[in-house]
Design a protein around this nucleic acid. Structure first.
Lengths: 308, 308
DNA sequence: ACCTTTGCATAGATAATAACTATACGATTA
DNA sequence: TAATCGTATAGTTATTATCTATGCAAAGGT
């Protein structure tokens, strides 16, 4: 049984005439005849009584036709629903990402998303949280990925994952020998931090329960730079979990877990409340969730999240 | 889009594995791969995300799969419902027909019915109304075609058609010159009737408002005989409408319509009330209705029907 | 009674496609 | 780096849907 055979049957039911039904289906009469016969053979019952003119539908044929109509209708519904869903997933999506997430996530996300939704053209920018909020408000961007909560009533947050912080320690430091560290083990004087604007900077200060008295000698523009500074100048810094994958094997030896408390940051998709393309939100969210390791999706980690 | 492609997709959804899905469908992996790809191409969207292991269903894929399940379910329902309907239309049907209907109807009915329902084996007997009622009660027959109403509470009547009576007049009779006749024009002394047992005999008497005082010289066993008697011995008789088709062209000249009142008999299918094979009743009824001329199906003719 | 028309089925050829085997390729893992 | 797993691709074969041409039966007209 094929959908086409059912369509032939329905055309025949409409026209009660093989030649006209064939025309309706865009095939020749013998083709339609043969296909209807084949279906009748498969179902092992006559659908049409050809001994009458015009042909009549048999008792059982009536039943078959009404069920065939259901099937064909549902098949058309399938195509229809795809069409309306796809319209959502076309056009352009302006997406912003904070710099402390971008290096790991973006290359993977772009590759994966382009493959799944080739119709949706992505415009991605890297910017700090406050710029994102501003541009989101004026609709210059549609969506952003950053650390939450923002506590902004105009902005909707869709949590994605929870990322632990890790300490990156220079071998020259005494605390290098420790396997686990807590906030108090890392005084500010030897803590390298990102320059102002990065939410990660604030989170580190919040976590250490200290405020910087004065700006340090040097504040880095990226985590990558931060790590290189520690390598060359000693001291320590704090980096997010996903950045670990970007370190070399020897650099990974300088990592120490942070405990008591465990520190995480919540990463979310944020949009304006009036953003209507719900399918796009799901598409982006699902795509990202597939990229990051499964254990980071555990919402129980939310309780360790450091606020901005 | 074909039903088979949808089944491949559903198998893939179950297994999340091309090789195992292919096994499930009884085809090779490249076949299933190609068919799924083809469907994705036709619908112009990816259903599965193959970049993950095990493969995952896309956002839109979830939607497609749930609709595909509906379609496949409905397709299976079609086959199921045919099966249950067909079971009704198998086995044996014991059918009885009264002799004044049989000659015209049976040859046509048997041919047509066998073609439509080859699985149902027909056993047909000719018998008089009272025998039919008796055998129906003891379930020796399942169904009968006869003249109604019977007014029997155990028997259910399904009216089929209404058959007029026609007068068959010998050219030797004075009333031969008339084009129309009424009951009073045909006194009993020259009226040839069927032998006792035939309901048609009673209907003719009822119609003529007379009771036979004594049995006539000869009472015929069939309408065919009745006609031949008139041809050879003069007088007249009354025959049912459908029998006209069985007369020769020259015999048809001896026919006169009966008016004032028009006389008809109601022909029905009768069954016991406990007869369960509803599909069989419809099958027989529809088949007969296709055989007899359309004007005889007009239920307005019921008001001219002569009781038994 | 004969011919024509109408309408579906059948036969044989052809084009489309679903299926196969073998193999490449990409991603993980040892 | 090789081995393994899982899917895609290439090339071939088998199947089948479709075509054109024709047969055949029934109904209608002359």
């Amino acid at each position: 049984m094929t959908l086409q055979q059912l369509e032939y049957v329905l055309a025949l039911e409409k026209t009660r005439h093989f030649v006209r039904a064939a025309e309706l289906c865009g095939v020749t009469q013998p083709t339609l005849s043969a296909m209807v016969q084949k279906l009748e053979e498969e179902l092992d019952c006559k659908i049409f009584d050809r001994s009458r003119q015009p042909i009549e539908v048999t008792e059982i044929g009536t039943q078959i036709i009404s069920q065939a109509q259901v099937i064909i209708y549902q098949a058309n519904q399938l195509k229809e629903s795809i069409k309306s869903t796809k319209e959502e997933l076309t056009g352009t999506l302006h997406l912003a990402v904070i710099p402390t997430i971008a290096p790991y996530l973006l290359p993977r996300f772009i590759a994966s998303f382009k493959k799944l939704y080739p119709e949706l053209s992505l415009k991605i920018s890297e910017m700090h949280t406050d710029t994102i909020i501003e541009k989101l408000r004026i609709a210059e961007i549609d969506m952003a990925i950053l650390s939450t909560p923002l506590d902004d009533p105009k902005i909707l947050e869709v949590p994605l994952y929870y990322e632990k912080f890790a300490a990156y320690i220079s071998p020259t430091e005494p605390i290098y020998k420790r396997t686990e560290l807590s906030a108090t083990d890392m005084p500010l004087d030897k803590l390298w931090v990102l320059e102002e604007g990065h939410c990660l900077r604030n989170q580190v200060f919040n976590f250490c329960h200290e405020k910087p008295l004065q700006s340090s000698t040097y504040e880095a523009g990226s985590i990558d730079t931060l790590v290189k500074i520690v390598d060359l100048n000693g001291g320590y810094t704090v980096i997010p979990e996903l950045h670990i994958e970007l370190l070399s094997e020897s650099q990974k030896l300088n990592l120490r877990s942070i405990v008591n408390p465990e520190a995480t940051r919540e990463i979310s998709i944020v949009i304006r409340h009036d953003f209507v393309r719900e399918g796009v939100i799901n598409a982006v969210a699902e795509c990202i969730k597939q990229i990051i390791p499964a254990h980071m999706l555990d919402t129980r980690l939310k309780k360790f999240a450091i606020r901005l």
